[in-house]
Nucleic acid binder design. Structure first.
Lengths: 129, 129
DNA sequence: GTACGTGCAAATGATTTGCGTTAAG
DNA sequence: CTTAACGCAAATCATTTGCACGTAC
């Protein structure tokens, strides 16, 4: 039951995936568009939007929304984010320990069917301080 | 050193604060605008935007961004959110235990000066299931 | 060959800004 | 009084959509 079985791998999708898989800075749609345009000069921004959404829906990439702007990353494992309040940079923080602790805590809440959790840490990164 | 010492309490600000303090559903700017308009019929949406931002910057209310849209709440204590993936409703989840656990874990990350943390839980609420 | 994807331009929705007027302290 | 806040309309920014054309399978 592989969700990726029906994916049509167009040039645009391949390049978007390729760009993301070499980029762990959580780029915005605009960033991805600028990057992919170097190889596919005629690609439109709408295509980038559509495909980023599509690829995220297929679980090949992950979407994060930071302060109202969508960003994308190739890291599809459950993980957490450390976000610089000053420059907005994001660093992944993998901690199964934290994920498990959170999920255990929430089991008390019978009213919700919790499916996932993620923790955001806010602070100032080394560059900014 | 009270940050609220210089706040000019205009009618608009008083009504916005009053509306929020009686509303724990995490209303959007539009919601606040519609609510406050009942009392101050001539208030403009720009004023609501400006004041929600202003009040949040003064620490009197808190801003949460869910899927690209700003929402506001009177609960200014550190806390977590349970978010319904279906209808978007938000419920506060106060757990000093989780906050402390998260902050303890992150102390290893010397590169960042972490100031705060919050955890989002995603699932399906009782109404939606 | 056909359904799905693409590019372009126009539409939408959230938020911000410029500016002349108004009111809080 | 004086400065910050307001209301209004226009501007901006992120994102979505409609549609004619193109291409992966």
């Amino acid at each position: 039951m592989n969700e990726s079985e029906n994916i049509k791998y167009t040039n645009q999708r391949v390049e978007i995936l390729d760009f993301l898989q070499n980029n762990y800075t959580h780029p915005t749609v605009e960033d991805v568009y600028e990057g992919v345009k170097k190889k596919l000069t005629r690609i439109s921004k709408a295509t980038v939007y559509q495909n980023l959404k599509f690829l995220a829906s297929k679980g090949l990439i992950q979407e994060v929304n930071i302060k109202g702007v969508s960003r994308f990353e190739p890291n599809i494992k459950p993980h957490h984010h450390i976000i610089c309040k000053n420059c907005g940079s994001i660093v992944d923080f993998e901690s199964k320990e934290l994920t498990d602790f959170s999920l255990d805590l929430i089991k008390k809440m019978k009213e919700f069917n919790i499916e996932s959790t993620n923790t955001n840490f806010f602070g100032i990164c080394s560059k900014c301080k």
